[in-house]
Design a protein around this nucleic acid. Structure first.
Lengths: 344, 344
DNA sequence: ATTAGCACTCTCGAGATGAGAGTGCTAATA
DNA sequence: TATTAGCACTCTCATCTCGAGAGTGCTAAT
């Protein structure tokens, strides 16, 4: 690992900040002017040449200023970025909004997406929290119309799932309630496996209902269907690097297609740094669509029990310090909210 | 009302189609070539001049071809568009997808949005169906943790709403079930007004729960929170008229901001034509953001009971015939699905 | 090790130019 | 009278040139 001198680190930091602000390459002369540094532009040029050779900087063309490479950003985020805690006033404004918002997890998630988008001036992504291990909490069966039944299933963690189906035979509300009561008694706190092995002496109608119950739990376990809240798409579209609409399409696709998003989230949950916040810079060689983007993500919720993801997608020159802090703060906030409303 | 000759109608139709395909102004010479018409370009020029004077056509600049004006599109949609029914194979492909999709209204809505976006090559909008008159169907109270309670409320129409709150006093599951049972008995099929006037002899805890119940019903009645499913945003971004990212932002804002969307939907439900499908061309003087856009909407569900909206936002040169047919078909499909799963 | 100076390179915006497509008008034609 | 051929004219758009501006690398002096 090639170490940089302190002065080189300073220069890298300045270039990152400068380029973050202006979206333009930054050159030696302008650096001296703007930051009035204690050395001359020629000195800086020498340093920049060295860092370019090391792969941390890049020139869009001969005789332009320098721009950080992916490597450069990675080094910056790994070693140089300063972990500012969000100022107290900002924190208060945000938590106040949550306090004022109507109750309910989905409202909070929407709000989190909205706040994050506004704070980071980028696109935000919030996935609904999801129990890793599903377990049965409560079942309700309601007669709706003829043989049709509305099934409401409550899982550990407070996840509520509903399904409407029709039975072969018409059953009244009393009969349905009795069945629900029986299932509630036998499956209390059972996980998917226990429920699937625990069926005995069922009548045909009970068997049908049991099948739907099992199916719904399985669906919840795999949960391809988890809600995803997006906000601030226009922020990323407004960035100059995405001004040609083609360029903007690829990251947009990522946000719209669930599968890609899941892929990114799953592969990113590996290591723990920056207080659990993950930073993915420029696709990391894996995601061609993200060549010019960075993604900043964190998990929230209760580890190994019920977790969701909150994060941001923006241009590679996103203000890392502030964005990382914001993502972490909102992640912690959502974690608190989730554990408060958690069913034990 | 200025009537057009048959030939002028033909020419208008050709211009609309031509411009829909190419996004370019279409001129007299190219029309003769492409459609080999039985009259010369000079004749066409005369006609075009007349129609330009009438306000149906417009020249982006002197000596360019013609483009339909809002008026022109409106005339086209009002008198000239042919109501193609969707080809049977397309209909089958679509309904097959619904058949294959996992059960559940929200999945259907997502699917509808996705199918519509793909078919129309524009942005699709689907709002969740919403009961116009809220009425109580069933209440369930579950103890979660200490004094915390999960309330699950089922409304007529199968809408399920949930809320978590804490009581002053800790109540066991049995006590909660008893309260729920009592509420279920007294409020069966009551509407908001009846529920709000029907509270008598309540214990302090019951009073708390009752307040939450009432609040949740009120929330459902106003339903600012209704889910909206969007898809195909990239389709509209890909259109050449929105290639400068600024231009694209305004319609995007419309889609992201709930309020604007509701506004458009509400004001557009007036008259019935084209089989209930509404066509809003170029903002109609009211919505500046939609100057270059058209919106095609229809209501689905059961009129006056539970309704939602499905539609499309695209460039003004959207293929009206096909898009209108598609919106209508999907609206009908959703209506069927909703009434099938309707709670009486 | 740092810096002043200089020649050189590259982008970017401002005109200049010409091909192409389209128009309106006039006069001839069916 | 309706249609059409012909023509002069207009406007855009892509391409080109050209000079200003910003930045670089290198060399020689401090």
């Amino acid at each position: 690992m090639n170490q940089l001198t302190e002065r080189q680190k300073l220069l890298l930091t300045l270039i990152v900040h400068g380029h973050t602000r202006t979206a333009l390459p930054v050159g030696s002369k302008s650096m001296v002017e703007n930051f009035n540094l204690p050395f001359s532009s020629a000195t800086i040029r020498n340093e920049l040449a060295a860092m370019t050779a090391l792969g941390y900087l890049r020139q869009p063309h001969t005789s332009a200023g320098r721009v950080p490479t992916e490597e450069g950003y990675r080094f910056f985020v790994g070693n140089l970025v300063q972990q500012t805690n969000l100022p107290a006033t900002t924190r208060n404004t945000i938590s106040h909004q949550f306090y004022q918002s109507p109750l309910g997890l989905d409202n909070w998630l929407k709000l989190a997406a909205s706040v994050l988008a506004q704070q980071s001036q980028a696109a935000s992504i919030v996935t609904a929290p999801h129990s890793n291990k599903i377990s049965f909490k409560h079942l309700e069966l309601l007669s709706t119309h003829a043989a049709q039944v509305l099934m409401v299933l409550v899982l550990m963690g407070g996840e509520v799932r509903q399904r409407i189906f029709a039975l072969e035979e018409v059953l009244g509300q009393e009969a349905l309630s009795r069945i629900a009561q029986r299932f509630n008694a036998s499956f209390q706190d059972c996980d998917l496996e226990q429920v699937s092995s625990g069926a005995k002496d069922l009548s045909p109608s009970e068997m049908e209902i049991y099948a739907h119950l099992l199916d719904e739990m399985q669906l919840a376990a795999n949960l391809v269907t988890g809600d995803v809240y997006l906000d601030g798409l226009n922020n990323v579209l407004a960035e100059p690097e995405f001004s040609q609409s083609e360029q903007a399409l690829s990251p947009m696709r990522l946000l719209e297609e669930r599968t890609l998003l899941n892929d990114v989230i799953q592969r990113t949950v590996m290591n723990e740094e920056l207080g659990g916040v993950q930073v993915l810079i420029g696709g990391e060689g894996t995601w061609e669509e993200l060549r010019d983007c960075s993604v900043i993500l964190t998990q929230y919720g209760i580890p190994d029990q019920i977790t969701g993801t909150i994060g941001v997608l923006g241009p590679m020159r996103i203000p890392y310090g502030h964005t990382i802090s914001t993502v972490r703060y909102l992640g912690d906030l959502l974690s608190d909210l989730v554990s408060e409303t958690m069913i034990e």
